[in-house]
Structure formats: structure tokens, C-alpha cells
Nucleic acid binder design. Structure first.
Length: 435
RNA sequence: GCCGGGGUAGCUCAGCGGUAGAGCGCCGGGCUGUUAACCCGGUGGUCGGGGGUUCAAAUCCCCUCCCCGGCGCCA
């Protein structure tokens, strides 16, 4: 980083730094002017520290700058570190020199604003300590995922974002102009990953996925980050094992690296510690229906689980858990039918506890050309759209499985926050693409 | 798309037929330990838009736009 000699707040707030003169730079988090004293709380990427400017103990220019400085202005400051229980965090800087870098206009966010206003000012709200903490957690989630996958021999690949056809659920695709034709923004890299396993065997990708669903819930984004895996020779059970190892590893690393941020967000770490132990519980769809019926839900075998049902199930567990073997009519065409029981698919969802719900969806894929074609017909899809995908079953087909993880859903659960919009810097919903 | 809630000062809201209000912010002043500091003074509005009823509409009626919460769908 340019500018030698500047320290970070976290490097300064230590017993061994007491009495030393240090230089810091950052932004004004809070300012309070009391007579001949000015308290300026400095915020940098690592935290906050209170700076005290006393009128008769600094040069005239420094005092003028301190009087003039406004909330969220950027500035540089020099001072002596000291301990003081009255300062937030227990340490403060007795200022000897201070200069404004960029004077801030009146900052439009002060606290107590409504959500719509805050979303309009997202580019400014993004610097809040809460969102900063969540973004750091997300960083650790992605880093941990990559660590796990690299260590276990998974190849990272880069599938396309622009696609020619529908794959699954054509109604929820974003259409775009592609030269003089139509194309779509990708909803999933899965089909492309399937093509890549024939050489690399174990592949994964991290891409944005786009869903033009008109959903209005706290768990949906129109643009989200999708972590997808696909493995040749993997059967459903093998892939479930990979998914729980991955999730428990991510949780472990976040607990190690982001303890401070979890505390700032008041996340109950005990709930996360429970997720370290694998395997996670597994129930079949049939059992899920029985549990729900016992709880008084009016749901019949064959119906998809709604939000209330899903929430009720997550209350039965204290760790993430799997639901498997769904009726084929509620799942996608590419899922392999259970050879023991052809009315259900070899599919699995991983649900996070505490009401957070689905974070992973995966399955073993249908590897037989004939059966896949039959499923396409059964579901009224156009085989022409899937010609290249069907080809994969004609040239050395292999049993294989995969899953997709919604990064923001995982971050939401790990962070313990109540709305997915805060897991992504600039959330996209149906009613919002600005800023 | 459906159900519910809401659009009044820069922000958060009250007012719900009779001359538009509060708190915070902002501006000026004061204060040598503040923690979203406090105290005094000042500033601030086509009441989302359009139409209608009425002597009189922020308030009642109709239409419309936007937002929030939830559902369906999904990661």
C-alpha cells in the first residue's frame, strides 16, 4: 500500500503500543466537539479508534482542521497511543497533528433511516460496520471453499454466462440481445460443467447466476453467486459427502478467521460449532412428509415443500441436514431416477438450521441417453434444445453427480442475518437495479 | 402474479373533513471526557401523481405509480 509509516487501527490498539507516536489514516466515523476538546473516531478497514484533539495542546492548523472536519471526511492523523477506559475499545490517540484529505459533505446516513432510503444510498451505506463485517465473512467463505476444493483435487473452470437456451425453467431467464439474436443470462453452469468432467473428472466453478423470478422474499436475489461442482464417477452419496465436508470446512475457517465479525453481528457461535461435525443428518422426502403431517401440516406425498414446511423442518435439527429422494415430478429432468424406486429421483437438498433453509441443491445425473430423452419428453421439453447435452450421453457416458451452492444463502446463515440483501454489496431485485 | 402494510420537512413519523406538526438533521451560539453527547436560538413542505365529492380535502371516493413484509418458485 502506498504511503509508508501509516498503521492500521488494529495494530495500534495493543498494550505494547502505549506511549508510542503513530500515524493513521481513515474516515471520520463519529465526531463530538465539547468546548476545547474534539473527539474524532477514526474508521479504517480494520476497525475504529477514538482520537482526542485538545485545543491548547496542538498547533493552530491542526485545531482548525479538527473543527472543520465532518463525519465521513477522510483524514490523516498523528498522535500518541494511550489506554483509556472511556474510549470505545479501551484505546485512544492523543492527537499531535491532523490533516483533512477529503472533506465530506453532510453524510446522508446517520442511523434510523428506512430500508428503501438505505438501498437508494447503498453506495454510501456499504461502508457501514455491519456490511463491512458481512463482506469480510463472505471473503472467508469464498477463500475457504477454494482451499477445500483445491486441496481435494477439484479443477476450477470458467463456464459461460451467456447461453443460447433455457436449460431449466425458461420462464425465469433474463433475455438479452446477442448481436442480431436472442440469448439468455445463465441460471446455472451445471450443463457446461457436465461437459467438462469428461476430461477433468472433478470440476467446479464460481459464477453469477441470474433468475428473473418475480419473487419478493428475504431469500431471493435476481443476481447471486453460484458455487457449482460436478464429478465424474460420483454417485449421490459420494457427492453428499463432498457437500457436507465443504460446508463444515467453510464454517470451521470462518470461526477461525472471522471471530470478531461474528461477535460484532452478535452471531451465536454455538450454532455454527454444531455444524463442524459431519455427517449431517439425512432424511428422505417420505420422512419429511411424515414429520410435517405429524406437526399438523396439510401436505400430501408428491407436493413440493413450501417455505413454512421448510422452516418447520429446520426446527427439527440443530445442524445442516439433507432431504433426499424427492418425487420426480417436482424435480428437474436431468436428475437420475432411483433404480429401486423410479417415482423418486436421486436428488438431495441441504438445508441450514434456524429457519434458514435450502443452501444446496444437488443430484446424481441421468447418464443414460434413452432415459434422459424419455424424461425430456415426459416433461414436455423440446429435445432440440438439449441436443448437445444429450450428446454427452452418447460419447462415453459415465455416472456423475453434482450440486450448486448459493453463496449468499450460506453467508446469510453463517452471519445470522435476516435478509439476503445484506450478503451482497449491490443487491439486485425485481424492483431495484440502482445503484 | 397474489395477500397485507405504507408513501406528509433532508431522515423517522404523528395528524385522518375546518389556516401543515414533533423528534432528529442542518445553520448560528455555548460547553475541556464525549459515546447516535448535551443546552439555547434559528431553518425547513406543490402531504407520491391524476381526477372527483364538498363552502372547505393530507384527511372521503375512483384511477394510477412507487416502496416494504409475506406467499408461490428456487440457490
Amino acid at each position: 500500500m502506498p504511503g509508508e509509516g501509516f498503521l492500521k487501527t488494529k495494530d495500534v490498539m495493543k498494550p505494547e503500543m502505549i506511549g508510542k507516536e503513530v500515524m493513521l489514516r481513515g474516515w471520520v466515523y463519529r465526531k463530538r466537539h465539547i468546548g476545547a476538546k474534539i473527539f474524532i473516531v477514526l474508521r479504517d478497514s480494520e476497525g475504529i479508534i477514538q482520537c482526542l484533539v485538545v485545543k491548547n495542546e496542538v498547533d493552530e492548523k491542526t485545531w482548525e482542521e479538527a473543527e472543520k472536519i465532518t463525519r465521513e471526511s477522510s483524514f490523516m492523523v498523528k498522535g500518541i497511543v494511550r489506554e483509556d477506559p472511556r474510549a470505545p475499545g479501551g484505546y485512544e490517540l492523543k492527537v499531535t497533528w491532523l490533516r483533512i484529505v477529503g472533506l465530506s459533505d453532510v453524510f446522508p446516513i446517520r442511523g434510523g433511516e428506512g430500508i428503501d432510503y438505505l438501498l437508494d444510498k447503498r453506495h454510501l451505506w456499504i461502508r457501514s460496520r455491519k456490511l463491512t463485517a458481512i463482506m469480510k465473512i463472505k471473503h472467508s467463505v469464498l477463500k475457504a471453499a477454494r482451499e477445500y476444493l483445491v486441496r481435494n483435487g477439484w479443477w476450477e473452470v470458467t463456464p459461460p454466462i451467456i447461453t443460447a437456451s433455457a436449460c431449466e425453467g425458461g420462464a425465469t431467464l433474463f433475455e438479452m440481445k446477442y448481436f442480431d439474436r436472442k440469448a439468455y443470462l445463465s441460471q446455472s453452469a451445471q450443463l457446461y460443467l457436465e461437459a467438462l468432467i469428461f476430461s477433468l473428472e472433478k470440476v467446479w466453478s464460481l459464477t453469477p447466476s441470474f433468475r428473473a423470478e418475480k419473487s419478493r422474499t428475504r431469500r431471493h436475489l435476481a443476481e447471486y453467486w453460484h458455487l457449482e461442482l460436478e464429478g465424474a464417477w460420483y454417485h449421490m452419496e459420494d457427492m453428499m459427502k463432498v457437500s457436507e465436508e465443504l460446508v463444515s470446512y467453510i464454517v470451521k475457517r470462518v470461526l477461525e478467521e472471522r471471530s470478531e465479525e461474528l461477535e460484532f453481528l452478535k452471531r451465536d457461535k454455538v450454532m455454527l460449532e454444531r455444524a463442524l461435525e459431519i455427517p449431517y443428518p439425512r432424511i428422505k422426502y417420505d420422512e419429511a412428509i411424515e414429520i410435517l403431517q405429524r406437526k399438523g401440516f396439510r401436505i400430501e406425498w408428491g407436493e413440493d415443500l413450501g417455505a413454512d414446511e421448510e422452516r418447520a423442518l429446520t426446527e427439527e435439527f440443530e445442524t445442516p441436514f439433507f432431504i433426499t429422494h424427492f418425487p420426480k415430478q417436482i424435480k428437474a429432468f436431468y436428475m437420475k431416477l432411483d433404480p429401486q424406486r423410479p417415482d423418486v429421483v436421486l436428488g438431495f437438498d441441504m438445508l441450514a438450521p434456524e429457519g434458514y433453509g435450502e443452501i444446496i441443491g444437488g443430484s446424481e445425473r441421468e447418464d443414460s441417453y434413452e432415459k434422459l430423452l424419455q424424461r425430456i419428453h415426459e416433461l414436455g421439453l423440446d429435445p432440440k434444445e438439449y441436443e448437445w447435452y444429450l450428446d454427452l450421453r452418447r460419447y462415453g457416458s459415465v455416472p456423475h453427480s453434482g450440486f450448486g451452492l448459493g453463496v449468499e444463502r450460506l453467508v446469510m446463515w453463517i452471519s445470522g442475518i435476516d435478509h439476503i440483501r445484506d450478503t451482497i454489496p449491490f443487491p439486485r431485485f425485481r424492483e431495484r437495479v440502482y445503484p
